[in-house]
Design a protein around this nucleic acid. Structure first.
Lengths: 247, 247
DNA sequence: TAAAAAATCTGACGTGGCGTCAGATAATAG
DNA sequence: CTATTATCTGACGCCACGTCAGATTTTTTA
């Protein structure tokens, strides 16, 4: 009896997981427009009403995927910030984490940005939105902690008027902005940008150097460390394509 | 006869303008969801079919607004890059242009980012998309030209491996990314970011300083120049709120 | 100026997806 | 084995999209 009870609950729970996987697959293969509740119900061999038992509307399904996405991102950031390395290398590990995320989980990145649009955001429940916000803040917090760590042990002397959070925002904006622009302007390469990844790396390095975060590396050192971090800090993730920082 | 001909054509043309104004108004006041073709037809006292004579679908109306938006942005960039000032000040003028754009034409900024999403982008005609792309590239080009100018007269010595376009991308990504994050995370201020404008200014300055673009300014000089540029280069635009760069 | 031709406008119509809900079915309790 | 509760179902009402045959207006032609 008790066994059956859990069996039923498990069935419902596992359906939710399958549902999100199916939705992700459709989204990745055919885009947002193709993701209809009818379609989802069909593919899951269930009725539309059942889907609505799990999510109050279509947008909320998206948000649920976005939550999975940010959890993945957070786990990558966690690994990066726990690396036993000097502060600046930990920061580089976060950069590597971003690159892995964007390269190997592009649909996650896509959903994360999609879900931020008012048309979608506004239709979601406060509860799930809070979930996303909290994780977002936690990700930012992890990066800010690395900055704080750098300040604490003297690798970095942040100007009085700049908080660690503001430095984090700069780096995140640079990264996020670059990948968004890249996603929507396929012609970037035609106008002199060889690789977005390369640009993001150079841009972030410039900001870190700009604030004199020690040690300042040569290009050779950067490349070497980049590969080392891919290998040692993220042994379980396939390494992102290694565009050389040097030409 | 000829007079009448032009009269009719003018009517159609002016309708298109009214249409876009009405659409902008709805969009600004009630968001994308509220912008339906029915609604547009109603407000213009015309039939739905007539709207479809102008635009093949709803998304294309958005894109048309985005084209107006980017034209505005381009005109601001034009003014900035034509200023009779040292290269680095011209670059700061572009930063001011961005701030004016985001502050005083927020709906334009919003539409520009909205239109980039695949769900909308894909449904638009190639012709109009090309229009937007071209203007986008022109805006990037204006900024790259300022970088080139700085290199040409020795204010800036760009590292071998970095093209002017890559530097432009960094600055643009930092700006665009920051404002997007700000738009979708109203809680930024709670986590230590006093003002996005301030963060963007500091971030861009850090990049410019990072590449040693001369002259390097003190905070006082930055603030002073910022106000001067608002006043002298953009006398026709209301100045953006002047958050001090210093605390 | 009047009739014919062309351009433009119109709104009813077909379509498709959203979200609901009364009734059917299955699970659990007594 | 029956009653109660939980879950599932799919037909339904609704709304907005985009179309198109026919009405209306404008332009051309004679």
């Amino acid at each position: 009896m008790n066994q059956r009870q859990t069996t039923k609950k498990q069935e419902i729970e596992s359906r939710e997981a399958t549902l999100l996987e199916t939705a992700s697959r459709i989204l990745l293969a055919e885009g947002f427009a193709a993701l209809s509740m009818e379609r989802l119900a069909d593919e899951l061999n269930t009725a539309k009403g059942t889907i609505y038992n799990h999510f109050p509307n279509r947008e909320e399904v998206l948000l649920a995927i976005a939550v999975k996405a940010i959890n993945k991102r957070q786990s990558l950031f966690d690994i990066a910030s726990l690396a036993q390395r000097p502060s600046r290398e930990r920061m580089m590990a976060v950069m590597v984490a971003c690159e892995i995320y964007v390269t190997h989980y592009p649909h996650y990145f896509h959903v994360e940005s999609l879900v931020r649009h008012a048309a979608i955001w506004e239709r979601c429940t406060e509860a799930r939105r809070a979930l996303l916000q909290k994780q977002e803040e936690r990700c930012m917090g992890l990066v800010s902690s690395i900055v704080r760590g750098g300040v604490a042990n003297g690798d970095l002397r942040l100007p009085q008027e700049i908080s660690p959070e503001e430095m984090t925002l700069s780096l995140w904006a640079l990264t996020y902005g670059s990948y968004l622009i890249n996603a929507s302007s396929p012609s970037l390469e035609e106008i002199g940008i060889k690789s977005v990844h390369r640009s993001v790396r150079l841009g972030c390095m410039c900001v870190l150097d700009g604030y004199h975060w020690q040690p300042i590396w040569t290009n050779e050192q950067r490349n070497h460390l980049f590969r080392e971090i891919c290998r040692d800090v993220f042994p379980d993730e396939p390494a992102p394509v290694d565009f050389h920082l040097l030409p």
